[in-house]
Design a protein around this nucleic acid. Structure first.
Length: 205
DNA sequence: TAGGCCATCTGGTCCT
DNA sequence: AGGACCAGATGGCCTA
């Protein structure tokens, strides 16, 4: 019996490693997260996912907008810096317009937009973090990437739907899949022996 | 070292 | 008008 492939690059099972190692940007991320969560507390506008506890153990530190300015990897070192660094050789329209528009009010608006964008991305990331908590993973598996998280979630939902439609006991259904291979109608691509193996870790009681 | 993944900045577009 | 959303560009980190 052949496996159905959900095509998750299939490498997730081959390069297991302990994950959760310290992110090199952890300190900055922590401060930024704290700031943005503080903003959320005030405004209450962040995604509902942001209230979940996945990142709740960070030290309680304060960060000002000035700190953001100085610590952000991109600010001061990225395209904005390039456009004002005196590189006269490049005079593309984009650069020219950027240079002309880099007056203080614009920069303030741009900086505010950057902060909103970072906040938006953080809310997306916290949603991904929450989703990671809901898809089956091995205890020793490395952290799923965003794309793998989405694909595994799709495969997982498809399998759950089929279990529901079958009316079988979920554990028996998974056992049957492990034994005989898994067939479904979707054309999603993920090695289902991986998926069912993951599901075998679930305590069904 | 190349490739994958990610965070960030940025400008454009859409929406309220 | 201002904010949300989006996609492209860029650079850093990590791993095979």
């Amino acid at each position: 019996m052949e496996d159905i492939f959900f095509d998750f690059e299939q490498d997730a099972t081959t390069d297991y490693a302990f994950w959760g190692q310290m992110d090199p940007n952890f300190q900055f991320q922590t401060q930024l997260d704290t700031l943005l969560l503080d903003c959320t507390t005030v405004s209450g506008q962040l995604s509902p996912w942001s209230s979940f506890g996945c990142q709740s153990v960070f030290p309680d530190e304060q960060l000002t907008f000035t700190d953001l300015d100085s610590q952000s990897p991109g600010l001061g070192g990225g395209t904005e810096a390039d456009s004002s660094s005196g590189d006269e050789n490049v005079e593309s329209g984009t650069r020219r317009s950027r240079r002309l528009s880099a007056h203080p009010p614009y920069k303030i608006q741009r900086h505010a937009a950057n902060i909103r964008e970072r906040k938006r991305m953080l809310s997306i990331n916290s949603a991904f973090e929450e989703l990671r908590c809901h898809v089956p993973t091995f205890p020793y598996e490395k952290r799923l990437s965003k794309i793998d998280t989405l694909r595994l979630a799709i495969a997982y939902i498809a399998l759950l739907r089929e279990i529901l439609m079958s009316g079988c006991d979920p554990k028996s259904y998974v056992d049957e899949c492990m034994k005989n291979g898994y067939k479904n109608q979707t054309n999603a691509i993920w090695n289902t022996s991986d998926l069912t193996a993951r599901l075998s870790w679930i305590k069904w009681d």
